[in-house]
Design a protein around this nucleic acid. Structure first.
Lengths: 158, 158
DNA sequence: CATATTCCTGACTGTTCTACTCGGTTATTG
DNA sequence: CAATAACCGAGTAGAACAGTCAGGAATATG
């Protein structure tokens, strides 16, 4: 989990796509102009999103992109994992290489726990939550004991 | 809150310092060789830590660094804030510049909430906690009012 | 069929950050 | 004085970020 601005751009674009895909596919040009992101950069991001099967594409006139799943079934963590490089092994946080005294380095557990924490937070929030600005609930639930059921039933507010 | 590897190095060094400062100041050379971090890099980090009044220095032979406060009073967030640059304004997450439709962009609250979340987590953990490997408790405390629920799912390598 | 549209791909560029090196200065101890 | 160790500033290779550019491949429409 890398948390760069790249992931933010991707989530912004995905939110825009979700909002705009009311009727038919959305072109990257539209997203680019609305979100002020360069078209080519978006193309790179969406290539990864497509490979991760989060969006699907239709070529030709009238084509564009569309969500592969409903916004309730796309977690923010899915998006970020799809576009971000796996964070490079910086001595620690990569299983090996952080054995100063024979076992894992002192701070290993800390980064481990932090990473898990962030992941839980972002995987407890769906695209739908972002669209509905339904965030505080998800935040408190991130650590567990949250009842808030993900409604999978409701179709196509998309 | 920036969460780069720079902050990790700083926390590793601080943990090392805390462990080694049983008797007298600790030299950066010692920390450098134990933690495999370059001496000059450490010097840069500790210059910032000193400016933030987290450590204090003694020059000359027998000198070195020492914690300014007790490990129970040094929060991990203090360390990271001290060494990391304030994250640059990347369109969103900087109050202005993210007004696509007149007000704040759709994902603004998300990043806001995430940032607050990470900060709460890291400020709920002290250096002492890291030394004692007392992490899960602190982690659960990050959000306040929860007793100790284990994280729900085991996320893939975050 | 031709053409416009749109996705798709690869290579290349300027800027920033990381992690580090080098050369030197200042303060303190023996 | 000489050794130690903190300080300070400049400079560097490499990587990632954000973007540009040039072209190609699929598809709908006239």
């Amino acid at each position: 989990m890398k948390l760069s601005t790249k992931g933010r751009y991707a989530v912004m674009a995905m939110a825009d796509l979700a909002l705009a895909s009311q009727d038919g596919p959305v072109t990257l040009s539209d997203i680019a102009s609305r979100q002020s992101i360069s078209l080519s950069y978006l193309e790179q991001l969406f290539a990864k999103l497509r490979r991760a099967d989060i969006v699907s594409s239709i070529r030709g006139p009238g084509g564009g992109y569309r969500l592969s799943r409903k916004p309730t079934e796309i977690r923010i963590s899915d998006i970020i994992v799809a576009v971000d490089e796996p964070l490079r092994a910086t001595r620690c946080s990569s299983a090996k290489g952080c054995l100063a005294d024979g076992r894992r380095c002192i701070t290993h557990d800390l980064w481990d726990e932090l990473g898990r924490h962030i992941y839980l937070f972002l995987s407890s929030i769906t695209l739908e939550d972002v669209l509905e600005r339904r965030l505080l609930g998800a935040a408190s639930g991130a650590l567990g004991r949250m009842e808030r059921p993900k409604p999978v039933a409701e179709p196509a507010t998309v």
